[in-house]
Deep mutational scan, measured.
Amino acid sequence: MLDDRARMEAAKKEKVEQILAEFQLQEEDLKKVMRRMQKEMDRGLRLETHEEASVKMLPTYVRSTPEGSEVGDFLSLDLGGTNFRVMLVKVGEGEEGQWSVKTKHQMYSIPEDAMTGTAEMLFDYISECISDFLDKHQMKHKKLPLGFTFSFPVRHEDIDKGILLNWTKGFKASGAEGNNVVGLLRDAIKRRGDFEMDVVAMVNDTVATMISCYYEDHQCEVGMIVGTGCNACYMEEMQNVELVEGDEGRMCVNTEWGAFGDSGELDEFLLEYDRLVDESSANPGQQLYEKLIGGKYMGELVRLVLLRLVDENLLFHGEASEQLRTRGAFETRFVSQVESDTGDRKQIYNILSTLGLRPSTTDCDIVRRACESVSTRAAHMCSAGLAGVINRMRESRSEDVMRITVGVDGSVYKLHPSFKERFHASVRRLTPSCEITFIESEEGSGRGAALVSAVACKKACMLGQ
Rank of each mutant, 00 (worst) to 15 (best):
Q26S: 15
L352E: 05
S64F: 15
L77I: 03
S263F: 09
L20W: 09
L463C: 09
D113P: 12
D205G: 00
V452C: 15
D262G: 10
E265H: 07
L77Y: 01
K56D: 05
F419Q: 03
G162Q: 01
L415I: 07
V244T: 15
S76Y: 03
F84R: 04
K102R: 08
R345A: 14
M202H: 01
G385K: 00
Q219H: 14
T405G: 15
T361A: 12
E395L: 12
M235R: 08
E256R: 01
V181L: 08
G385S: 01
S131P: 01
W99T: 15
R358C: 08
V455M: 15
E421Y: 08
R7P: 10
C382S: 07
F423D: 05
W99C: 15
E279F: 12
G223D: 05
F74V: 05
Y214D: 15
R85P: 05
G388V: 06
A6I: 08
F23C: 11
G249E: 13
T431I: 12
E265C: 08
T431D: 09
F438G: 04
G448A: 00
A378D: 00
L463S: 13
S321Q: 11
S445H: 00
M41Y: 04
K172P: 06
I19Q: 07
C252F: 00
R303I: 00
W99F: 14
L58S: 02
V226S: 04
E322C: 12
L30S: 14
K420P: 09
S398T: 09
Y234H: 02
K32R: 12
L301M: 15
P359F: 08
S411N: 01
E112M: 11
A176P: 02
D198A: 11
N391L: 12
S445M: 00
T65W: 15
L271S: 15
G81Q: 00
M202L: 05
S131V: 03
D158R: 05
E443D: 08
G44L: 04
R369V: 10
Q98D: 06
R275C: 08
T49Q: 05
N83G: 02
L386S: 10
R303S: 08
A454P: 05
Y61E: 02
A384K: 02
L165P: 04
L88M: 06
H317W: 12
E14C: 11
G44I: 03
K414A: 12
Q337S: 10
K102H: 01
L271N: 12
K104T: 12
C434R: 05
Q38H: 08
V207R: 04
E52I: 12
L25R: 00
T362Q: 11
T116L: 08
D4S: 12
A460M: 15
L2A: 07
S174E: 04
P111C: 11
G92S: 11
E95V: 09
T209F: 00
E395C: 06
Y349F: 10
R429L: 11
A449K: 05
A10F: 15
G183E: 10
V181H: 00
K420R: 13
Q38R: 09
G246T: 06
A232Q: 04
S151A: 02
A370H: 02
E22M: 04
Q347D: 13
L271V: 10
D247H: 00
L144T: 02
M210W: 10
L243P: 09
R333V: 14
G385V: 02
E196P: 05
M34H: 03
T206R: 02
G117R: 06
R85Q: 03
W167T: 07
D267V: 09
H424P: 11
V33G: 12
D205P: 00
G72V: 01
G444M: 01
L79V: 12
T149L: 04
Y234V: 14
E300Y: 02
G44C: 10
E221H: 09
D132F: 03
M139L: 07
G294W: 01
C461N: 06
E112K: 08
G444H: 03
T49C: 06
R191E: 00
E290L: 00
V310F: 09
T405E: 15
R192Y: 00
H141A: 03
P111H: 07
V338W: 05
F74M: 06
K140P: 04
S398N: 13
G193L: 07
I348G: 08
Y125G: 12
E256C: 01
A119C: 04
D135A: 05
L75Q: 02
S426I: 06
L304C: 09
K169F: 01
K13W: 11
A456S: 15
M402N: 12
V62W: 05
T405N: 14
Q287P: 08
L276N: 11
V199C: 04
S76E: 03
V455Y: 15
A10D: 08
E67P: 15
G227C: 04
L88T: 07
D113C: 09
Q24D: 13
G147L: 09
R447E: 05
R428I: 10
V374N: 07
V181I: 03
E27N: 02
E70G: 09
S336D: 04
I390K: 01
T332H: 00
A119R: 00
M298H: 13
L58Q: 02
G295F: 02
G448H: 02
C213D: 00
E339M: 07
E157T: 05
R303E: 07
L386Y: 02
V199E: 02
L79Q: 04
A282C: 08
M57Q: 04
L134K: 02
P145Y: 15
H424W: 09
H317L: 13
E17I: 12
C371Y: 05
A208I: 11
A208N: 07
L352W: 05
G385T: 01
N231K: 00
L306F: 08
L184H: 00
K104A: 08
V62H: 05
A450W: 03
G388F: 04
D341K: 13
A119T: 00
I439G: 09
V277M: 01
Y108R: 02
F133V: 01
S131H: 01
G94V: 13
F23R: 05
K459H: 11
Y273C: 15
E48P: 09
Q323R: 14
S131G: 15
R397G: 11
D198T: 14
E268F: 10
M115G: 02
L77D: 04
V455L: 15
V181Q: 01
L146I: 00
F148A: 03
R192G: 03
L271F: 03
C461A: 11
E237Q: 12
D42Q: 08
E279N: 15
T60R: 03
R428T: 13
H137L: 13
M462D: 15
Y289G: 04
G328A: 10
G385I: 03
A173D: 00
T431Q: 12
G68C: 14
I436T: 14
D278Q: 04
R392D: 11
Q18D: 06
M251P: 15
S69R: 15
S212P: 12
E322H: 13
K143L: 01
K31V: 10
M402Q: 10
L243M: 10
A201C: 11
V182T: 07
L307E: 12
G178N: 05
A379M: 07
D198F: 07
